[in-house]
Design a protein around this nucleic acid. Structure first.
Lengths: 226, 226
DNA sequence: CGCGGCTTTGATGTTCATCAAGTAAAGTGG
DNA sequence: CCACTTTACTTGATGAACATCAAAGCCGCG
């Protein structure tokens, strides 16, 4: 008898080193939860009891700066969001996570996972690698964005959505202008202004949430040198 | 017969879960190297063969932006620098590391360490925790610095040296003004300007590399709200 | 239908990067 | 060890990039 976990992408991506018994144990404690667009998965400061991974959907990881302002750390699609920064290093979340699109999230009790890490070193190694890679990537991206001027950041983030997330030159933005600003350290007004500029220059088409890249070469050049 | 590793801080900090045999094996493959102030420990792009930890001294982790400019990611003292970001997630270093002060670094072959991770899950868990914590802290610090204006950043970095590194209100800067700028995303001229301002306001004394905090309350307030 | 949040554009102000120029310190080669 | 070169440090003046303020239209939602 097979369960749905056996055919999940994560089976080979993350749990390849678990034997049948171990994997069975894990899937027993596993719960799958559905989050509607906008719903919050976990909040900064809450106690960490579970290990999450994103099966389907799109999430944002963020910190609350003050009542009016958030800082978005990263946007993650499946395989880019496993566990969470801080799951193994803190007792409480240091970031919040919410759903940008309807999402399916798998939840494993942290204690069960820790036991597996301790009993299966190969699995521990895989997890260590994946989480390190995730961490590195987030840090590198933040550093990269910081080097760019506002035009460069805007171009960069459009390309990120097109290439990494939607794999298409045409897509609907899953975030507001304000959220884009919070993601790339800008003010909302400037995001809007620069999007308009890029449209007037014939580099992108934009209408509400819908974006289409017209001149990818130029957009990439702006992203790189801006 | 004891070796020096038995009395090293890292024995309990990182290697507590290794038994005598395992620890013995590790220390056999261990080499200790001495780096003089200014020397480079490893370079961005080089193949990763070793796992490093800082026994004594002070390091900077940085990326080269272009021939004239570096970006400093973090400054680490012992126990804050174990392994390196990217050791487990990449084949090649994504950052460089050099010594800000004369430093002793212990070097373990990465393969030997990986074998231990795979055979000893408790050790794996400890390593995962420590490295995650290091990663989280670096990311949080970068985010925090970015929220501050130049005055706030300068105050923050002075307090970091005083509280985290030298544990004293009076200390000698281990870095140049240019390096401070590279660490907190500023221009050298502005670092100098603001240090002078803080001196003129009677908040710090500064003479060459020597800094003394006079009014810590005010400095902390500048760091927090700046 | 009215309120609040999102979007947009224009005008204004501030912060910070850049340029320039000079002094001091430190490293380099004869 | 001294002349020479380079690098670090410092201050002032200027301009560009970006934040802030203001106002108005839009949309969704109670």
């Amino acid at each position: 008898m097979t369960n749905t976990c056996d055919v999940c992408t994560y089976r080979s991506y993350l749990f390849d080193n678990l034997n049948k018994t171990e994997f069975g144990l894990l899937t027993l404690s596993r719960k799958e939860m559905f989050f509607r667009k906008g719903e919050i998965i976990c909040r900064e400061g809450e106690k960490i009891n579970n290990f999450y991974y994103l099966k389907e959907g799109l999430l944002k990881v963020y910190k609350t700066v003050d009542a009016r302002k958030e800082q978005i750390i990263s946007i993650s699609n499946p395989l880019d969001f496993i566990g969470l920064l801080s799951v193994f290093s803190n007792f409480n979340y240091i970031f919040s996570v919410s759903a940008l699109e309807n999402s399916s999230i798998c939840i494993i009790e942290l204690d069960a996972l820790k036991k597996l890490i301790q009993s299966n070193g190969e699995f521990a190694m895989t997890l260590l690698e994946k989480m390190s890679k995730m961490n590195d990537q987030i840090l590198e991206t933040r550093l990269l964005i910081n080097l760019k001027n506002l035009r460069g950041r805007t171009a960069y983030i459009i390309l990120m959505f097109a290439k990494d997330i939607y794999k298409s030159k045409k897509f609907d933005l899953p975030v507001s202008r304000k959220e884009i600003a919070e993601l790339i350290d800008m003010r909302t007004e400037n995001v809007i202004r620069i999007l308009s500029e890029l449209r007037n220059d014939g580099i992108i088409k934009i209408e509400g949430k819908s974006i289409e890249i017209i001149d990818q070469k130029r957009l990439e050049s702006i992203s790189e040198f801006g």
